[in-house]
């Protein structure tokens, strides 16, 4: 059940991002929805599930749009794993922690994605940070406030469902 719901969410997020979000780009920069989803699920469910969801989300993006497979999956798994570490000292109504973790994760994600450019000899790092990573981070953070609420509601619904199922058997 949980696997099914989460994979549907990841698919919807990916489709939304590649179609509808093209309209809401500001000066060519769009938000990073998959990072928000990885961070919120990792926070709500812990390291193990965070890493798996991160890996799945990254692999999905890799397969759909990437040339090489596995790089975004690697980044996603790491982000999910380390955000899941904060699961213990986190209560669901706390909004500051997902906000801050989204900020850090988006920056890390951006830096990691820019690594292939540097290996290929595009060394204008200031441009990458100033014109791509920073606007993307701000946009993603604003969006994370909304998306986190949705993920929280969905997660609570799944948990309630799992509990009732357990009582029956």
């Amino acid at each position: 059940m949980r696997i099914f719901v989460v994979s549907i969410i990841l698919l919807i997020a990916n489709v939304l991002q590649s179609t509808l979000f093209d309209i809401i780009r500001i000066r060519g920069i769009g938000p990073n929805l998959s990072v928000i989803i990885i961070v919120s699920f990792a926070l709500l469910r812990g390291s193990k599930e965070g890493a798996i969801i991160g890996f799945a989300a990254g692999l999905l993006a890799d397969i759909i749009f990437g040339v090489s497979r596995g790089y975004l999956a690697l980044i996603g798994a790491c982000i999910g794993y380390f955000c899941g570490k904060f699961n213990k000292d986190f209560y669901s109504e706390n909004l500051v922690l997902p906000f801050m973790l989204t900020l850090i994760s988006t920056i890390v994600y951006g830096l990691a994605v820019s690594l292939p450019f540097i290996l290929r000899g595009k060394l204008n790092y200031i441009y990458f940070i100033k014109d791509i990573i920073l606007p993307e981070t701000i946009y993603t953070m604003i969006l994370s406030i909304i998306v986190y609420q949705i993920v929280y509601v969905i997660n609570r619904a799944i948990e309630r469902n799992e509990n009732t199922n357990r009582k029956i058997f």
């Binding site: 193990k48 890493a51 090489s68 497979r69």
Partner: peptide, 19 residues
């Protein structure tokens, strides 16, 4: 938990190297 991360990392790296 750590084992899972390591497995995922190795899988990712293999895919990356191959492609």
């Amino acid at each position: 938990n750590k084992n899972i991360l390591i497995i995922l990392l190795v899988a990712g790296t293999i895919g990356l190297v191959l492609t």
